[in-house]
């Protein structure tokens, strides 16, 4: 039985369709990445999966429980943490843990045990009496995660959990996520950072309420299977983009830092003498290599196609 089973899930707000006929399954212990621009429908989907919002139509089973029938049952089986790390900033570390333990009705013995676990996981041992406001972003983030899993939920929703946190803390955080998944916790995470999405077992890409791509990272990258991407480094990137766009074999170009990425329409990059033509156009080519598509390439490509449809 999948941990999360979503079939034809739809949510309308008046005439606006926020989530439009979305179906997917997430297996136990999987890290499932949910990608999409702001307003793509990610948050609305998560709110439905957490039992906060009733679906207009379709079904969603979370931990085997139907979200529209037993929202409370769903809430008991999930943990939730958002980018805002919803802790009480005027309370101490310990008081926050105690409050969330109370919300989930933990017994005293279980509280003592889980409190130790949360403190250790967040690296906050010996800092129990610190006011949460004084903690750095990374600590707050790990404490919020600890509070969200005090009741040991089998399914964890992370809504942009790493916003506003430094790269080292982000890496630490992902190590914790991997660890939890290793213990069998199913994790559904939304993120803006596409490098983070690469760490997910599978990803789903949402656009305008619809699911426009789903699969393992390698699978979704297959959209570029017969469209190689060449990365060109030249002295004048903007002029190079114009020159590349003029070539019939080039589908599109985009700027990646100081380099230019060109997507070719032919399966074999070697067939197109890109470098020669650029030199002929009077540009100094420093390097030209074929690169594997990044998730960012995939994301932008899918959104472009979905928008064109």
């Amino acid at each position: 039985m999948p941990a999360i089973d979503v079939q034809h899930l739809t949510r309308r707000f008046g005439k606006f369709v926020a989530v439009d006929d979305v179906s997917f399954r997430v297996g136990e212990g999987e890290i499932f990445g949910f990608l999409g621009a702001n307003g793509a429908g990610k948050s609305t989907t998560i709110r439905m999966l957490c039992g906060l919002l009733r679906p207009t139509s379709g079904t969603a089973l979370v931990g085997g429980v139907d979200v529209s029938r037993d929202a409370e049952g769903v809430k008991r089986r999930i943990g939730y943490m958002s980018q805002r790390f919803s802790l009480y900033e005027s309370l101490t570390v310990e008081e926050n843990i105690r409050f969330f333990a109370g919300l989930y009705g933990l017994s005293e013995e279980r509280y003592a045990e889980r409190r130790r676990f949360a403190l250790e996981m967040a690296g906050l041992e010996g800092r129990e009496t610190m006011i949460t406001r004084q903690l750095s972003g990374g600590w707050r983030q790990r404490l919020a995660l600890g509070c969200a899993i005090l009741h040991e939920p089998p399914i964890l929703f992370l809504d942009e959990p790493t916003g506003g946190v430094d790269p080292i803390s982000r890496r630490q955080f992902w190590r914790l996520i991997d660890q939890l998944a290793g213990e069998g916790v199913t994790i559904l995470v939304t993120t803006h950072y596409l490098d983070e999405a690469e760490r997910c077992g599978r990803v789903a890409i949402m656009h305008a309420g619809r699911l426009i791509g789903i699969g393992t990272v390698a699978e979704v990258k297959q959209v570029f299977a017969d469209r190689p991407i060449v990365e060109v480094r030249v002295d004048q990137p903007v002029a190079a983009m114009q020159a590349l766009d003029a070539m019939p074999e080039v589908e599109k170009t985009s700027l990646f830092g100081t380099a230019v990425h060109a997507v070719l329409k032919t399966p074999r990059a070697a067939d197109v003498p890109v470098a020669d033509r650029l030199r002929a156009a009077g540009l100094q080519v420093q390097s030209l290599v074929t690169v594997p598509p990044s998730l960012e390439d995939v994301f932008l490509d899918m959104i472009e196609k979905a928008g064109a449809r």
Partner: peptide, 13 residues
């Protein structure tokens, strides 16, 4: 502060 959202996610009537 967003803590309401967190409370709504909990099994608390």
């Amino acid at each position: 502060n967003g803590t309401m959202e967190q409370i709504r996610m909990a099994p608390l009537g």
